[in-house]
Design a protein around this nucleic acid. Structure first.
Lengths: 337, 337
DNA sequence: CTTAGCACTCGGGACCTATGAGTGCCAAGG
DNA sequence: CCTTGGCACTCATAGGTCCCGAGTGCTAAG
């Protein structure tokens, strides 16, 4: 029902609309792409495409613009991810290699994506629960208060102050620190919570109240509270496009951590690019935007997600290329440290 | 040359314009504020105010709007900081008290300012150089690579990975860690750099290459690189106002760390609110905005700055009240931990 | 199925006008 | 000298009209 030419027409409409921002008509279509048929023929095709819901006209006497469904077909069947140029790949590599800690890696990743796509970039920190404990440090602040610092193998460093039920001397702290590190070190944080109960036996009764109770609670709450660490950048790029819903709504959505998380979407297969187009996006207020996201991390161990948000009228092949490439390089960089 | 009534007129113009966003004319002025003179008299006053550059008319047959100079006079002489309501103060206190680490305090502070002022909030992390070292942790990653974690008395935790010239065993690491902490602990970071040279003598020759060289370099670079940690929030509030220069420019400026730093301005006396109005702002692209900023921290020891950015047409008394109050409470919270 | 021809639609720009808020100025009054 | 009512003037804005042209759908012929 959709022959080859109709698909080609749809592709042409999407490409033209994305680059010009203006509804595209049958005439300009045959001009720019060398179709060897007349505008009238194209019009017939367009009528069919419209009937099927792939394109629409803003008003009667205007050209056509793609619908969400049209973009969907375009992404699924009519386009291929555009690989980055060699120069761009080199730029990514060197820029990321300059990072000296995780915060810096994440920040640079955001910048990279913003630069490459000229849109809004969203990057999630490596999941805590999926990470393994590299080291736990306890720093006494006062006799009844200490600072817990958690360091994971993915480079995340999280901190939390703890109020102790009983006063504690330095020796006890050192002892508990040693026990905690030998027992929990190297284990995934998701397993650690369960192991805390075993830990109690290895700690003398005098220290148990503090150590056991407090640490168990703290590890859990620290992990839960920080699981969803996520940042974005490139908001200025939103101002360039005009959103029907007003960009205030979009900006508000972006400033909500929870919304950002949902934006990157539920689990999909790692190493696959996910594209959400317009209304496919469940987040209210972002239904005139599209999101291209993917996992990053080693092939065997996905760490977290990153993505790009822009108007539905975006350069999908280019954006997908950039997101894919950046995710790959970030994975490499983190694997090395 | 500016008698009392003229000043009152200016104040009324500022207040009306801020609340209505529309040029204010002589008639509406006498209506809303009960002047006991006629519009004509006010017109005369306005002519004088305009001649002196405190107000201007967008076009011939429109009312007047304040100029930067007009706002300046208003802030300096015609208004007083509006104290927050008891409810607001309580809200601030409880919201900030819920924070469990420095990142959380800063994040909540941003949110608070955004909520209270409905504008853009900018908060700087406590200065590293001004802070004292509470603990330094060295975590071996590989024999030739380790993670340096720096914890300050202001609650900042900074990390950095280090490549070592020679391989290192755990014992050496522990030893150096102990030495470093006893020597540097409690000292200001600004002094620490200088003390690193003395440190060398206490470390056996075998470990010196690694310890001395690497630590010295690292402390310095870590401090320098992270000195300017600063975040902002509330960009969505910019969309509500319309900036002559387009808000794209403003958003772009906000995403630059360097610009954010300059925004909070050079050193002024602690505990004093600084107000920069329109063109007083040196940052290009932000000359149609005003910034209200101040130091936070204990009275004796300023930690860093925070502030609010909005259109020149902002509620100065209210904004100043909010900024001042939040700064005070943040200082308290940080002093307690 | 393709194509040329043709009538039709309708958004947007150009142009005009009416409206009215707001002004500056002046002359008279306190 | 300050204040005030009166008055002519200005000009941005909103609404109305007109026209143009890009783009369409339909039809009939190739």
């Amino acid at each position: 029902m959709l022959d080859d030419r109709k698909l080609t027409v749809l592709r042409a409409i999407v490409e033209d609309y994305v680059s010009t921002t203006e509804p595209v008509g049958s005439k300009s279509l045959v001009d720019r792409h060398h179709f060897d048929v007349s505008p009238a023929t194209i019009r017939n095709d367009m009528a069919v495409l419209e009937e099927q819901g792939f394109i629409a006209q803003p008003h009667t006497s205007a050209g056509r613009i793609p619908t969400d469904k049209g973009y969907r077909l375009f992404v699924d069947r009519l386009s291929s991810v555009k690989p980055l140029s060699a120069a761009e790949r080199r730029a990514i590599e060197t820029f990321l290699a300059g990072a000296y800690n995780l915060d810096d890696v994440v920040m640079r990743t955001v910048r990279l994506l913003v630069q490459l796509t000229r849109q809004v970039a969203v990057v999630q920190y490596p999941s805590l629960t999926r990470s393994a404990i590299r080291h736990i440090e306890l720093v006494p602040l006062t006799p009844q208060k200490l600072l817990l610092v958690l360091i994971t193998d993915t480079g995340r460093v999280e901190q939390c102050t703890v109020d102790l039920p009983d006063p504690w001397d330095d020796a006890s702290v050192s002892h508990v620190r040693a026990v905690v590190n030998t027992c929990l070190g190297g284990h995934k944080l998701s397993d650690a919570a369960a192991m805390v109960s075993d830990l109690a036996e290895r700690i003398p009764a005098g220290e148990r109240t503090n150590a056991n109770a407090v640490l168990a609670v703290l590890l859990a709450s620290l992990v839960e509270r920080n699981e969803e660490k996520i940042v974005f950048g490139g908001a200025a790029n939103l101002a360039a496009h005009d959103f029907s819903k007003g960009l205030r709504e979009v900006l508000e959505a972006l400033e909500e951590q929870v919304v950002l998380m949902r934006l990157l979407g539920e689990a999909t297969e790692p190493a696959i690019l996910t594209v959400r187009i317009g209304a496919e996006n469940e987040v209210a207020g972002l239904q005139s935007t599209s999101v291209v996201s993917t996992w990053y991390g080693n092939a065997d161990q996905p760490l977290a997600k990153l993505g790009v948000l822009g108007p539905t009228r975006m350069d999908y092949p280019g954006t997908m290329g950039a997101v894919g490439a950046v995710a790959r390089y970030v994975g490499q960089i983190l694997a090395e440290s």
